[in-house]
Amino acid sequence: MKILLLDDSPKHRKAGVKQLQELGHEVVALCEYVEACKLASEQPFEVALLDLLMPAEQLQLGPDARKEWLGREISVGFPMVLELSRLGIKKIAVATDTNHHSHPMSAIVDWFDGKVHSVNGAKVMIGHSPMQSDGTKDWGKLLASLLAE
């Protein structure tokens, strides 16, 4: 399968590329959500695996907003689900490694954890990421959960 992987952490991206390629998938790993949307609008992906919290990019921001927001973590996983499903990706998982005691949006993810949703005709899972023993996200396990059922 052709998989779009989006995470701002290089260690999680590297782990994802290694794991998913070993499983025989083609992986495009990116660290910027604007770039991810652009790429998804230009070429088809069957699956998207996304981080929930990522640093805000400069998209449309004026000078004052750049000072306030650029680089600050925002819950980009939710709008990404809407946009990538609209662009035709049929299976999407959003996974955070942020502890639910540390961030309000990670706490809200408790509501969705382990449940399957349908958004714009896509199968969507939003939850806390399974982790490997080295502290990186277990993308293979996440993909298996998304493909199950």
Partner: peptide
Amino acid sequence: DTATALRLVKETE
């Protein structure tokens, strides 16, 4: 450039 800095911090460990 702050946007470049932001991209590079995500590309490196």
